[in-house]
Simulated assay, not measured.
Amino acid sequence: MEPHQPAPLRDNRILLLKLSAVACVMFAFAWGLIPVYDALCRITGLNKLLQPDSVAVQNQPQGGKALAAPLTLSFDATVQPGLPWQVRPLVSSLQARPGEFVRVDYEITNASNRRVIGQAIPRYLPAAAAEYVKKLDCFCFAQQAFAPGETRRFPVVFVVDKSVPAGIDSITLAYTVFDVPGRS
């Protein structure tokens, strides 16, 4: 026969088992949401930040239409606090006309003594300009792994759609780079 345990000790063990079970269920639920979210994004087209845009090439009529006014394009980058990277565009700004292909290089350095994996997320100012910037090549399309002290350059190739409204005369393309936890 099992010796009789005092009621508070038995109640504490039962509570510990229940709380452990709840924590395990919550962890499994959160882990299971990752593939569900990925599938939902693929089906609905959400989270298109990680895919190249498509650009329709249109032939310009000869001598008919005047060229659109040039836009001022500015470039910036920030890093999540604690991430040991240095990210900078090699050009801070330039002029380009809507419809012109633009290439800007970004330089990224892992300033730590450990391997680090990061992911860049683009943002546009003004926010309304986002739908007119069509990126064809970007380091933000994939996670980037860097060895200790490694420096690399990445191109960002894009075109500003010709249908950009006249009120948008400057666009800032900025990236924020985040650490990818558990992948380093």
Rank of each mutant, 00 (worst) to 15 (best):
R103S: 09
R103C: 03
V104P: 12
D105L: 13
Y106P: 01
Y106N: 04
E107R: 13
E107V: 03
I108T: 08
I108R: 03
I108L: 13
N110A: 06
N110D: 07
A111R: 15
S112G: 09
N113Q: 12
N113L: 07
R114I: 06
R114Y: 03
R114G: 02
R115L: 07
R115F: 03
R115G: 02
V116P: 00
I117C: 03
G118T: 05
A120E: 02
A120P: 05
A120N: 02
A120Q: 01
I121N: 12
I121C: 06
P122D: 04
Y124E: 11
Y124C: 11
Y124F: 15
Y124R: 13
L125R: 14
P126Q: 10
P126I: 07
P126S: 08
P126M: 08
A127T: 13
A127V: 12
A129V: 12
A129H: 14
A129C: 11
A130W: 04
A130I: 03
A130T: 09
A130L: 08
E131H: 09
E131N: 09
Y132Q: 09
V133W: 07
V133F: 07
K134E: 02
K134Y: 03
K135R: 15
L136Q: 15
D137G: 05
D137K: 15
C138K: 04
F139W: 06
F139K: 02
C140V: 05
C140L: 04
F141R: 11
F141S: 09
